[in-house]
């Protein structure tokens, strides 16, 4: 282990923590912070990594999720990064982790008090798609003028017959700030509502953090006559049989054979351990 604990120097961590305190105090509000250059490109989770580096301690246990799984490239390299720079214990099990850094998913396993979720956020501004002017976005947030988010929903229903945004679905935090929950599927939005865990969001490129403190209301925007639906999956996981989890379509062979399986691999394996099912032989 070389360099400072968890890579960032202590002053930089303090700056991030200070921004995080503000973010926790004003749920859903985007707080600018002096983001550092990290030894990896933007888009690889530099925002989330800085947040994790600022809140992690030697006794923490870290889980990293990329596309719901702990063994994809991005997840493995972030695990390695913190193993090397902080020497912390790494786990795949959501229930054992004290900090879970994620890119696309909230674990299916319910989160508990004391756990911290850290999200890597590519586009923190939920108003960006209709309002390109940064100054105007700030005004809209300051005055809680969120009409244009409903314009987007209107447009979705008009074009697709339903609200088609399937990920990064905007939500109202604590009844005040509209928030982009990063690229998690809208299936995961309800998991944020009154969650027992602390949720921290870090955007490295735009250098902003925001937060959802424990037990905070997070309501997905919708119309009275088109209420929010969490995109239920019509089928069961072909590995563990769960009908309640978010499924990935996985190609299993050269001839286009495919199965639908839990995107959350830890959850899926846990269920298979319990039911004694084994991995289906792959083609």
């Amino acid at each position: 282990m070389s360099g400072n604990f968890a890579y960032l120097d202590e002053d930089s961590k303090r700056l991030v923590r200070r921004a995080l305190l503000k973010a926790v105090s004003v749920p859903g509000y985007q707080v600018p912070f002096s983001g550092k250059e990290m030894p990896m490109p933007y888009g690889w989770g530099t925002g989330g990594i800085q947040v994790t580096a600022s809140v992690i301690g030697p006794s923490d246990t870290l889980k990293v999720i990329d596309q719901g799984s702990g063994d994809t490239t991005n997840a493995v390299s972030i695990q390695k990064f913190f193993k090397k720079t902080a020497g912390v214990r790494i786990t795949d099990r959501a229930s054992e982790a004290t900090i879970i850094q994620t890119r696309h998913r909230v674990p299916e396993t319910p989160l508990s008090e004391g756990q911290i979720m850290v999200y890597q956020v590519p586009i923190p501004e939920p108003l960006r798609f209709l309002e390109p002017r940064e100054g105007e976005c700030l005004q809209l947030h300051a005055n809680a003028e969120y009409g244009i988010l409903y314009v987007k929903l209107y447009e979705d229903i008009t074009r697709h017959g339903e609200i088609a945004s399937s990920y990064d679905y905007p939500a109202m935090v604590n009844g005040r700030h509209a928030m982009s929950p990063s690229p998690i599927p809208r299936f995961d939005n309800p998991k944020l509502h009154r969650s027992k865990a602390l949720h921290l969001f870090g955007a490295g490129r735009e250098k902003r953090v925001y937060a959802v403190p424990p037990h905070t209301s997070v309501l997905s925007l919708d119309f009275d006559d088109h209420p929010f639906k969490a995109a239920p999956n019509p089928r069961a996981c072909e590995l563990c049989g769960s009908t309640e989890s978010f499924l990935d379509e996985v190609v299993t062979g050269d001839r286009g054979e495919r199965i639908f399986a839990c995107s959350d691999t830890d959850y899926c394996e846990g269920r298979r351990r319990l039911t004694g099912k084994t991995l289906r032989k792959e083609a």
Partner: peptide
């Protein structure tokens, strides 16, 4: 959507 923006901004929540 252009026409609907003002009503939506004034609190209309019914598509």
């Amino acid at each position: 959507a252009n026409v609907a923006e003002r009503p939506l901004s004034s609190g209309l929540r019914d598509y």
